[in-house]
């Protein structure tokens, strides 16, 4: 099995990256029914990924040979009232199961953090479902702490 290398995504990667993004969203659905995935998620993901490349958001992939096995996507956000103001927000992070448990996630997070810092981010924030204990453990193990909690309910 080829050792995956982390690199910037290109337009040629869009279908494969979109597939991984949808897998990540489906995984979120395991934690809460509020993350029910829409039927045309794959089509939406393709647009989302290509828009991200065009908008120059951070989009890194891990590729084992020609096969895309992981993705991390992040974008810059401004905080109006707080300092530091510029946040690098990791919105999507997914690695295929057979490439997990071998520090690839750590490597991708490091490279994403460096990239975001170069883009001007002063803090790095990652968004994950509250119930995703694996993700919570992944980030806390690397010095992240819980910052904001989202509370959700359906309106009566």
């Amino acid at each position: 099995m080829a050792v995956p290398k982390v690199r910037k995504a290109t337009m040629a990667d869009v279908p494969a990256v979109a597939d991984l993004v949808v897998r990540a969203k489906r995984l979120n659905n395991e934690f809460d029914p509020m993350f029910a995935v829409v039927a045309d998620a794959r089509e939406r993901a393709k647009a989302y990924v290509s828009d991200s490349i065009k908008a120059r958001h951070l989009l890194l992939v891990a590729a084992a040979g020609t096969k895309v096995v992981g993705v991390v996507r992040a974008e810059l956000r401004e905080r109006i009232f707080y300092s530091p103001e510029r946040t690098g927000l990791i919105t999507d992070f997914y690695i295929l199961p057979e490439f997990r448990r071998r520090a690839l996630g750590h490597d991708m997070l490091e490279q994403a953090s460096s990239g975001l810092r170069r883009m001007g981010a002063q803090i790095i924030v990652a968004e994950v479902p509250s119930q995703n204990e694996i993700a919570v453990k992944f980030y806390t193990k690397r010095g992240f702490r819980s910052l904001v909690q989202h509370f959700a309910k359906s309106p009566q």
Binding site: R23, R26, L27, E30, L96, P97, E98
Partner: peptide, 22 residues
């Protein structure tokens, strides 16, 4: 197999089957 659509579900619901898939 490792890339089956429901593999992430298995990782959470049945880690024994998940390990076999990998």
């Amino acid at each position: 197999y490792p890339e089956r659509e429901d593999i992430d579900q298995l990782s959470l619901r049945n880690k024994w089957k998940y390990d076999l898939a990998l």
